[in-house]
Design a protein around this nucleic acid. Sequence first.
DNA 1: TAAATTCATTCACTAAAGTTAATTAAGGCA
DNA 2: TGCCTTAATTAACTTTAGTGAATGAATTTA
Lengths: 193, 193
Amino acid sequence: MDNRLLEFIEQYIPLTEEEKTVIDDLNIIRSFKKGTMIVEEGDIIRDAIFVLKGCLRSYYIWDGEEKTSAFTTENEPLILLTGDDPNKTAHYVDCVEDSIVTLGNLEMENETVKNFPRFEKLCKLISEQLLEKNASSFAEFKNASPEQRFKNLLKNRPDLLQRVPQHQIASFLGMKPQSLSRIRKRLSQKSSA
Amino acid sequence: MDNRLLEFIEQYIPLTEEEKTVIDDLNIIRSFKKGTMIVEEGDIIRDAIFVLKGCLRSYYIWDGEEKTSAFTTENEPLILLTGDDPNKTAHYVDCVEDSIVTLGNLEMENETVKNFPRFEKLCKLISEQLLEKNASSFAEFKNASPEQRFKNLLKNRPDLLQRVPQHQIASFLGMKPQSLSRIRKRLSQKSSA
DNA sequence: TAAATTCATTCACTAAAGTTAATTAAGGCA
DNA sequence: TGCCTTAATTAACTTTAGTGAATGAATTTA
């Protein structure tokens, strides 16, 4: 079995052999074809996903338009929280590429805690880290112009531009596809000048 | 003792009397005068704050300017995470008003877990909820113009406009004070027309 | 392969925020 | 009280993103 999930977990807490077995036995590795929806409206409203291979896109519908909130690629976790509030915006996740992921839900989580109590601490550490990342992405977004945000993306996640359609990148950057196209043109003219 | 901290915690998990005693015994209530810095650069890099009274402002320095990332008011928690990465932007917290808060740090947290194991689960639930809130604020911010963001603030947190200086609100909304002033003027002209 | 979608680019135009600078108002302090 | 610093407003000008529409390119699908 691909042990990157275990390696990922061991970044946070060391695991005993028994604990590793508990996790292995969950048997939560799944493969999906490009374009497949992993999470749909009305689905289990709480999920934890870890990407072994491929690229997932998280999005929601806002004013009738798809808004991309995240791209999750190799060795990254994705937590879907929609709390208890039923009138929240529905969230979706689909595959930008053929992908291999581990998929867990809330029941599974409760079950795992029984055999593996420190799992609670693990979840705490992961969600704290995600909170921190999210907060710093938010800060970066707030203080950058659309052009600067695109430059930041080029610097931080250059692979996405090869993997993901432009209009999804534009949406992720909070701008219209036309604007992204214009920005790219502007930058390429500057660099060649 | 003010028991709002216990009430807040019991939104997440029920507490036994012993657990309540453990928390009370922490003795972490502190009062601060308006303008006081609660967290400064170089301070303990990980803190959990709960506001009983008053208003805190979280900010960081970006390109030599103060950028306000959050206002935390009555009955709200604030978690400060700067991870292990030393070259992160320094974060600060000061008091917009005279404030009463509970203050915890990492050592205290580890100590508490010994007497109160479910504290781990509590932290997990709180950070998950904060993650969710942060993600939805981010989404709202991304999809709104500066004018719309100001309208959202008026709707969601009207008290802040009475409590906090305009230039801090402007920074929180990711715009210049001049722009906020102009937006306010525009809106007041529209409403009176 | 052809038709049909969907995607990316370009253009002209509009609207709004950034920038710089000047003025007025408010708060803090000697 | 009056001075000094900081905050808020206003204005003229520049820059840039949104909008609507048209075109061409690339994928899908029949």
